[in-house]
Write a protein that binds this DNA or RNA. Structure first.
Length: 708
RNA sequence: GCACCCUUAGCUCAGUUGGUUAGAGCGUUCGAUUCACAUUCGAAAGGUCAUAGGUUCGAAUCCUAUAGGGUGCACCA
């Protein structure tokens, strides 16, 4: 057998930057991202892409989800499933508004000085531009998603679904309007749900104030104008005689008369065992007030300033007012002592720690969470929804304990308007105005209320054929950081609205951290830009770096050398192909016993890798492929083959020629099959090599058949 | 306070249902190299698998406790 020349392409090293865009275009033009065009596809396999927030570039976390989901999709496509990967983009209400407001701030502008419509229009233009850019980046990462079905959270049909769900919740008594304490951001002028908050530890003085016969402790003396009672523990012997009476004393702005109530909420051990009750500005006090029928009394306004009920303190900001109140109380001898070393937790905006949230009682829309949580609980208990990593099952159940109702009203512009109308006590849920004397709710929905409906909304619930075919979806793959925000809400709303689970498996990936396990952030300058990495090392290299050693649910560390290592692997593959094609043309030859063994050994690897992928152990599968191809196939099998091919080149040696032919065919078939099973991991380089194969079963590797 | 996770080589991490001498990448040291390889190949050093008990013929793997690190949830003014 004559040594052949490898295809010309192999004369140069593999160049991902030049190759990848062409390959992606070929895939996209083939139409095979769209399951309607998959010729023999049978059972559906669906992943709804977590829609990235259309307010910036894709970061490495996005690259990770693209890699994992694309891997599963490509694998299933090759296995003959009717695979749908539905891409989307999220308008990301509050977060986008935050990003855009920051941009305005830099330009010396503010949304509060802008017309509502003007602000909306600008934010929309900004978002759509980002969305377009993001779509290009998803392509760059190799996402084989069906662009023809792409959805945006503000698409009219999505909004309609969201409205229908809201109406149904209202009709079922699961959505209600209530005036309860909300987490109010004075900076951004909106309320936030409980999930959008976090607590930080802070040191504040704890003031012991004289309240008539009592001394009580507080960190917020400036709220004293809003007191409507003082409370003690019902069994506290010290205060028995006061329970049910009223106390009177001279305050800073006149005489104060407060009822004394007994409530279990009071901790006898803390402070003096007496608490002032300020229902408008403390959620716990609000609860106490509810139980004892105490009035509210708002003294701090939406901008965090004391209002007209506070006399000379009117107009002061909270901290300023606190200082003044303390000074004045001091002067009047009404402060018994101050504990300067008191640490307590303060509720802040989870996106901005400097934004301290004020409790405020205003009317908002709430979703009754208990019945919905119950639907989700049962679905997980009976296995209709499965967490790939067991730990999240535990976290899920723990989270379900003691949930409070979900505030879905946001006082922001960028979002889906709440379709509610009011006339006196009457409420109507509809999009258009019911009449001239009705006023529209000025708020928008929490963005998670709409994205929580994403799986069935994007598939066109209830009547679309897509919904009937692709729902429930197969797997929900996303970061554990949005387990509560998003995954739980999808479970609850999906089950509520459609009666079926939105997805069967939940695969949660961890955070991508830097080499020192620090969280990546722009301010630390340790961000790895995935798109820059693909340009330098190729998308395949980035994908492998994100896959190998990345256990579900666990954070991973990523550094550039790791990506580089897999770029070398791409090149290794390229040269393996070159060697094989120099010595074999893929025509069917008889295989001898020795080569049969080699092929069988490889078949075991194929089986192993297949089982790993089926069980979401892609991090193992990736490593096994790497090692087989490099350390076994290249380092040993190819090395051993060199003398065989050399002898096979001698025309006077027929047995040597047979051996070479056998070996050539064995190598060729291992190469071809390797390309297949490696394709979901490294789609570009495998497709590029596949295109050079002289004999192949299908034009595109992407839709070749997965080996048995 | 409650819950969850982690602790394995210098660093970052794998180790699938407990089963031969515990693996990878990067890093370190030494050597080779116009033979598929903008390199690659070969070799080496490096581990009491956090600690202490237990289960087992057998434990990095299962159980209990302890210590350290991380995360989530809830919080008393």
């Amino acid at each position: 057998m004559e040594p052949r020349n490898a295809p010309e392409a192999f004369l140069k090293p593999y160049n991902p930057a030049n190759t990848e865009p062409h390959i992606y275009r070929r895939w996209e033009e083939s139409g095979c991202f769209n399951p309607d065009n998959l010729p023999d596809a049978k059972d559906p396999y669906t992943i709804i892409m977590p829609p990235p927030n259309a307010n910036g570039s894709l970061h490495v976390g996005h690259a990770l989800f693209v890699t994992l989901q694309d891997l599963l999709i490509r694998y299933k496509r090759m296995r003959g499933y009717r695979t749908l990967w539905l891409p989307g983009a999220d308008h990301a209400g509050f977060e986008t508004q935050l990003v855009y407001e920051k941009k305005l701030e830099k330009e010396g502008r503010s949304r509060f000085k802008m017309d509502r419509n003007e602000f909306y229009k600008e934010t929309r233009a900004f978002t759509l531009e980002n969305k377009k850019c993001m779509e290009g980046q998803l392509r760059q990462l190799g996402a084989s998603c069906d662009w023809s079905r792409e959805k945006f959270t503000l698409d009219p049909d999505i909004i309609k679904t969201v409205y229908d769900t809201f109406k149904k919740l209202f009709d079922d008594g699961l959505a209600y309007r209530g005036a309860r304490p909300v987490n109010w951001s004075t900076k951004y002028q909106t309320s936030l749900s409980d999930l959008e908050t976090k607590t930080i530890e802070r040191k504040d003085p704890l003031y012991y104030l004289k309240y008539g016969p009592f001394v009580l402790a507080t960190v917020r003396p400036e709220t004293k104008f809003g007191d409507t009672a003082v409370a003690v523990h019902p069994d506290d012997p010290r205060y028995q005689k006061y329970i049910g009476t009223e106390i009177e004393f001279d305050g800073l702005i006149g005489k104060v008369v407060l009822k004394v109530v007994a409530d279990e909420y009071v901790d006898r051990e803390f402070g003096t065992g007496v608490v002032k009750i300020t229902p408008s500005h403390d959620p716990n006090d609000f609860e106490v007030a509810q139980r004892h029928n105490l009035p509210l009394n708002e003294v701090i306004d939406q901008f965090g300033r004391l209002n007209e009920k506070t006399g000379k303190y009117k107009g002061m900001k909270i901290m300023e007012a606190r200082a003044r109140v303390v000074a004045d109380l001091q002067a009047k001898g009404m402060i018994e002592k101050v504990d300067e070393n008191y640490t307590h937790n303060v509720l802040v905006n989870y996106k901005n720690e400097n934004d301290i949230l004020e409790p405020r009682v205003i009317p908002q829309w709430y979703i009754k969470i208990a019945p919905l949580a119950d639907l989700a609980r049962r679905a997980v208990e009976d296995g209709r929804i499965r967490f790939v990593s067991e730990q999240y099952r535990k976290i899920f159940f723990h989270w379900l304990e003691g949930l409070r109702d979900w505030n879905i009203s946001r006082q922001i512009v960028w979002g889906i308007p709440i379709p509610a109308w009011y006339k006196g006590d009457e409420i109507k849920i509809q999009e258009g105005s019911p009449g001239a004397d009705w006023t529209r709710d000025p708020d928008t929905f929490d963005t998670w209320f709409s994205s929580g409906q994403w799986p069935y909304a994007t598939l066109g619930y209830p009547d679309s054929p897509d919904f009937k075919t692709y729902y429930p979806t197969s797997v929900m793959e996303t970061g554990y950081d949005i387990l509560f925000f998003w995954v739980m809400r999808m479970m609850m709303l999906g089950l509520y609205r459609t009666g079926e689970v939105p997805f069967r498996d939940v695969y949660l990936h961890g955070l991508v951290r830097d080499a020192e396990r620090q969280k990546m952030s722009k301010s630390k300058g340790n961000v790895i830009n995935p798109l820059a990495m693909t340009e330098v090392y190729g998308t395949d290299a980035l994908r492998m770096a994100l896959l190998v050693g990345n256990t579900p649910g666990q954070d991973m560390a990523l550094a550039e050398p790791k990506i580089k290592a897999y770029k070398l692997f791409s090149n290794k593959l390229w040269n393996i192909a070159r060697f094989v094609l120099e010595n074999a043309d893929g025509s069917n030859k008889e295989i001898n016993d020795a080569d049969t063994k080699i092929v069988e050994e490889f078949t075991a690897v194929v089986q192993d890798v297949t089982t790993d992928i089926e069980n979401y152990r892609v991090y193992l599968a990736a490593e096994k492929l790497y090692h087989y191809l490099w350390d076994r196939f290249a380092a040993e099998i190819i090395e051993e083959s060199k003398p065989i091919f050399k002898e096979g080149g001698d025309p006077s040696n027929p047995s040597g020629q047979d051996a070479a032919a056998s070996r050539g065919y064995a190598l060729y078939s291992i190469l071809a099959t390797s390309l297949k099973i490696l394709h979901p991991f490294m789609p570009f380089v495998t497709e590029a090599i596949w295109q050079e194969l002289p004999r192949k079963e299908s034009d595109l590797l992407m839709i070749a058949k997965w080996p048995k």
